[in-house]
Amino acid sequence: TGCEKEPSSYMWIYILLGNMLRGIGETPITPLGISYLDDFAKEEDVPVYVACLHTIAMLGPMFGFLLGSLCAKLYVDIGFVDLGSITITPQDSRWVGAWWLGFLIGGVTSFLAAIPFCFLPKSLKKPEEDNDKTSYGLLENMRKKLTPAQSKPRKCQLIYPFLSDFYTSLKKVLSNRMYFTFLCCSLLQFNSFIGFLTYKPKYMEQQYGQSTSKSNFLIGLTTLPPVGIGIFLGGLIMKKYKMGIIGATKFAFIMSFLAYVTTLLHFFVGCENHVVAGMTVSYE
Rank of each mutant, 00 (worst) to 15 (best):
C52A: 09
T109K: 05
S110G: 06
F111A: 12
A57V: 11
G102K: 04
I78E: 03
I56M: 13
G97N: 00
R94L: 11
V108F: 12
I86V: 10
F103I: 12
W100K: 14
V50M: 04
V76G: 09
V50G: 02
I86C: 06
G84W: 04
V81A: 10
F65I: 01
L124N: 04
V50D: 04
L67W: 01
T89E: 15
G79D: 01
A98L: 10
P121T: 02
G64A: 03
I88V: 10
P61R: 00
I56N: 06
L83G: 04
C71S: 12
Q91V: 05
A113E: 03
L53G: 01
G97S: 04
L74M: 15
S123Q: 12
V76I: 15
C52G: 02
V96A: 13
W100G: 13
S69A: 15
H54Q: 10
Q91R: 07
T87R: 09
G107P: 05
W100P: 04
C52D: 10
K122G: 05
S93G: 08
M62W: 10
A51W: 10
I105V: 15
F63W: 11
I56H: 09
V76H: 14
D92Q: 01
M58I: 07
I115V: 13
S93L: 08
G68D: 13
H54D: 08
A57Q: 09
K122C: 02
I86M: 03
F103C: 08
F80Q: 13
L120Y: 02
G64R: 03
D82N: 12
L74T: 13
H54Y: 12
F80P: 02
D77Y: 05
W99N: 04
T87S: 14
F111M: 07
P121E: 01
K73I: 05
Y75T: 04
L104C: 05
S85G: 10
I105T: 08
S110F: 08
I78V: 11
C71K: 11
C118Q: 05
L120K: 05
A72M: 08
I78L: 07
H54I: 10
F80W: 12
D92W: 01
V108H: 08
L74D: 08
S123I: 01
I86T: 06
W95H: 08
G106P: 02
L74I: 15
L124W: 06
I78Y: 14
G106L: 06
S110V: 11
L83P: 11
L120C: 03
Q91S: 14
G84Q: 13
P47D: 09
S123G: 03
D77F: 08
P90D: 04
K73V: 05
A114W: 09
K73R: 14
V46W: 01
A113P: 00
L59N: 06
L66H: 11
L67N: 09
P121R: 00
G107K: 10
A57P: 03
P47Q: 00
V108C: 15
F103R: 10
L74A: 11
A57S: 12
S110I: 13
L66D: 01
P116V: 00
P121Y: 01
L59S: 09
A114D: 00
I86E: 02
G106Y: 01
P61M: 07
A51V: 03
D92Y: 03
L124K: 05
I88Y: 07
I78M: 05
I78K: 01
S123N: 08
I78R: 07
W99P: 09
G64H: 07
V48E: 00
A72D: 15
